[in-house]
Design a protein around this nucleic acid. Structure first.
Lengths: 149, 149
DNA sequence: TTAAGTGCAAAGGCTTTGCAGCATA
DNA sequence: TATGCTGCAAAGCCTTTGCACTTAA
């Protein structure tokens, strides 16, 4: 946690080239804590709901503004899973992808070196500079598969 | 084209088990034509813009309702590329994925058998019944890469 | 002290829906 | 003729923004 806050405080260069920081406010600390504690796959509304219960006056606007900042600083990843909503999770060292159940909404994590190969292929064949690769697999999880049949 | 309309007309079962169809209206014909003619990656607003120029009174609601029907009938695929918008394209035999340029918005198509392997792995390891797999790669295309550096 | 963050409320963009009238089969 | 599609306008959902006030450093 500490290192994230340090990173927040020392990340920009101002006009004179000095390193200047983003103030570490109580709200930002709380939100980052919540996202880290959520273990991945939490959306803005749920972050707001949990934050409100600890800090009644926090606003949804602050949640979105903080999420944008965290993204820019590389502290969290934003993923668009399923239909509409964005989900957030703190950045992890190992790349992973998601399986989303269309019936119960459960999100499973999924890892494979093949993703890296796909990215490499895109770079090679299209001279494309890849900044992000997202595989979203939709379907039905083990339990929901049974229930439906 | 013809076969798509036939499909639309004969796709449902009513309460008595007879096949009944969705009426083929002028609007649906026009919209399906436009989507097929667009060669992929067209969004609802653009579909509406083009449709309006041929049929002034058509409404955006009809565009969205038709898109939903086409999806349900399996006539078109809906893909969420980049940040927010959905793009539509007529269903093709070969599965493919997309590379989206963050600078100019261009969408490149991308094919690889590795996707199939990933899906197979998900099914195997998680007992997951996969209905859709979408890989969205973001980054910078050849031209924009040059311009930026 | 001062640049930057915050809450609030309003607005924005995309998509869906209620309703009365109209068209397809 | 009867089911169900259409246009219109309003609403819904998620996200962003303008403004005046407050706060971290």
């Amino acid at each position: 946690m500490l290192e994230l806050l340090v990173r927040m405080r020392n990340i920009r260069n101002n006009a004179s080239g000095e390193m200047v920081g983003h103030p570490v406010t109580a709200q930002r600390r709380l939100l980052l804590d919540l996202i880290r504690g959520a273990g991945g796959h939490i959306d803005a509304k749920e972050i707001y709901r949990r934050a409100s219960s600890q800090e009644e006056s926090i606003s949804l606007a602050t949640v979105y503004r903080s999420l944008r900042l965290f993204k820019e600083l590389g502290l969290v990843d934003e993923r668009r899973l399923g239909k509409v909503r964005c989900y957030y999770e703190t950045k992890r060292s190992v790349e992973h992808q998601h399986l989303v159940c269309k019936r119960c909404g459960k999100v499973l994590e999924f890892e494979s070196p093949l993703i890296g190969e796909l990215v490499a292929k895109a770079q090679r064949e299209y001279s494309f500079k890849v900044t992000q690769a997202e595989l979203c697999i939709e379907g039905y999880c083990r339990e929901c598969k049974k229930k439906d049949s």
